[in-house]
């Protein structure tokens, strides 16, 4: 079988290295008022046929991802927020909109995109997915352009994602969307069922919707 262990490990090693770097990114903005900086990058699907390993049973190694676009979005602070007890859990959320443009480089450590040589043998190609960790560096979306919500349940970050219909999804409840961040947070608490807590991990999750999923142990 063409997909060797080493190839897969390289992919994952790439993901992990990128994730570690992504986890460092919030440190840049960790102090002071909650100013979230968004870094955008979209990976373009590479055209097929520009390398080996394609096909239904081909290796999983892919070519370099498409051009990476970095960008920022306008940032201003607004007052939208909630803070309530729901089924014994404290749910808090606020819309974090920030002022000013920041060059991507100031919010993203240079190590955020792992140098190819550092994570894989020389000559190996980097699959497009490997350079795009868990949404840690996703393009700013139209839906999120009004700012991003940061929601916590008992002080632990609840990652929110936007759906095209304007709804909100959480990592706990991934196959349905809710009309508001509060509704999504309550549904997540329902799902936690009084016995579980969100994982405390991942600083990356604290950066709100559109960023990392924050589920790594």
């Amino acid at each position: 079988m063409a997909a060797g262990n080493s190839t897969r490990r390289d992919v994952v090693r790439g993901l992990l290295a990128a994730a570690v770097a992504a986890a460092l990114a919030p440190l840049v903005t960790a102090s002071g008022p909650p100013r979230t900086s968004r870094t955008s990058r979209s990976s373009q699907p590479p055209r097929a046929g520009d390398g080996s390993g394609s096909g239904i049973d081909g290796g999983i190694g892919g070519g370099p991802g498409g051009p990476q676009r970095f960008g920022t979005e306008p940032q201003t602070r607004s007052a939208a927020e909630f803070d309530e007890m729901y089924r014994g859990c404290r749910i808090r959320g606020f819309k974090d909109t920030l002022c000013g443009e920041r060059p991507a480089g100031t919010v993203r450590p240079t190590g955020a995109v792992p140098p190819a040589g550092a994570v894989r043998p020389a000559g190996a190609v980097r699959p497009a997915g490997a350079v795009r960790p868990a949404g840690a560096a996703r393009a700013a979306s139209p839906a999120a352009s009004g700012g991003s919500w940061r929601v916590t349940v008992d002080d632990r970050p609840l990652h929110l994602m936007r759906r095209a219909d304007g709804g909100y999804l959480t990592m706990v409840d991934h196959y349905q969307s809710y009309p508001t961040p509060l509704a999504a947070a309550r549904a997540a608490v329902d799902e936690l069922g009084g016995t579980l807590r969100l994982r405390a991990t991942a600083a990356r999750a604290e950066r709100g919707e559109g960023h990392g999923h924050g589920v790594r142990a």
Binding site: G135, A139, R162, R163
Partner: peptide
């Protein structure tokens, strides 16, 4: 890592 929702970019 590949769960990207459609209200997000990317």
């Amino acid at each position: 890592d590949h769960y990207v929702a459609d209200g997000e970019g990317g």
